[in-house]
Design a binder for these strands. Structure first.
Lengths: 222, 222
DNA sequence: TAGATTGTTAATCGATTAACAATC
DNA sequence: TAGATTGTTAATCGATTAACAATC
């Protein structure tokens, strides 16, 4: 648990640090300076030192940080030594794509449960994962020690599903719908929102901040 | 184009404002106060007034803001009156899922081009969209007026694909790989990064900030 | 010792918010 | 007119960064 004062901004940078450090380790680089790591990740070196200090990680003056130690410590912080079983709610296009996607299990997030409220889907299976009715959510979440809930339903159902996940004791939720969900304080929610990302991109297209080359000119709709 | 000084934070909130405003419009609410809108979106009312003012939108003292006008103005700002043709690079699991996903076209981002560097895939089609070899990227991007490039390749290819898109004149890129890409200033990049989101969630699980209920207890790997 | 780099303080920056006069 | 709400100033907050003494 170390210090305890880790800002959300720092947490958000940890995956990028780790990615770069794993590359350095693969290239047999044994130590790295905050300056070098900062450049690779695209942040300021003082920020790197701050972030590492907040994790209780120290380097050696005049030398830098030990790459392997950094990889180990950040991996532990990110919980990468453990498996976090996942429940996916919604077996539509997205839910099935997730069930087919092997990258989740490879990263320590095996899908242990796939749920859908369409009775016709119950009993079918996707990539060897059986689809269960949502009515069994609470029992199955407990039975399979689910740690992370993924909401892959239509937006209208997002809050209802979130409530059911929280009631079943799930404390981490990944919301793929455009609908923001309200949860108690101790529950952590992240949103992966394609619609919002696209709208932000089109804002910049629209403003011409991303253009002037001739392509990317809008076509009028209808 | 109005004022011009719109912060990235403001842009990031526009989709949420719009979502809430569309709901209000559907419920025939004609005006809304910054206080009410703020509560719905989960921000401070001064922030709402700031954001709207930065878009050049004014309300009426004692009354509030006109809902329909707000919907119209924000839609224009977000470029929602236009279509932004999309090129998806990578016809693997993710690329095909995107090609199958109707939500993109519904939101004004029709997929006009699907590319893959596997010669065996060239000529096949997904949801009626033909797969072309990556070698034809530049020509087809121009021919089909592509505005937005989506990178759905393995992470290793991300930078190379980004370079090709930029060279072809694409100025908005949505990167689905975990690999950050470097682009010239005038190009806008957004990343949708499942791996990072999951790692952030597992950080909080690991720290027990999202727990104490008994479920979500980690299982040791290997 | 001389050079490099950390760990941390103090300055800076940008964004959020409280507060309130203006005004519908 | 009285009540409500905007538009904006000034205060606050949190995060980033420059700078540098400590020290390997």
């Amino acid at each position: 648990m170390s210090s305890g004062a880790i800002s959300a901004a720092t947490v958000g940078r940890l995956p990028a640090y780790l990615r770069s450090l794993v590359e350095l380790a693969a290239a047999d680089t044994s130590t790295v300076s905050s300056d070098h790591l900062a450049e690779r990740v695209g942040v300021n070196s003082a920020t790197v030192r701050r972030d590492l200090a907040s994790l209780g990680i120290t380097g050696t003056r005049g030398v830098g940080y030990d790459v392997k130690y950094l990889v180990f410590e950040i991996s532990v912080e990110l919980g990468l030594n453990q498996e976090w079983p996942v429940a996916v709610v919604g077996a539509g296009n997205l839910g099935r794509a997730l069930a087919n996607y092997t990258g989740l299990a490879e990263r320590g997030f095996p899908i242990r449960l796939l749920l859908d409220n369409d009775p016709a889907k119950a009993g079918t299976s996707v990539s060897g994962i059986e689809v269960h009715p949502v009515s069994r959510l609470a029992a199955l979440v407990r039975e399979r020690s689910v740690a992370v809930g993924v909401i892959a339903t239509p937006a209208e159902a997002a809050q209802e599903v979130a409530d059911a996940l929280v009631a079943a004791g799930v404390t981490s939720i990944l919301n793929f719908t455009a609908h923001p969900i309200a949860v108690p304080d101790q529950v952590v929610v992240r949103r992966v929102d394609l619609a919002t990302e696209l709208q932000i991109l089109s804002f910049y297209q629209q403003r011409g901040l991303a253009s002037s080359t001739g392509v990317g000119v809008p076509l009028e709709t209808s």
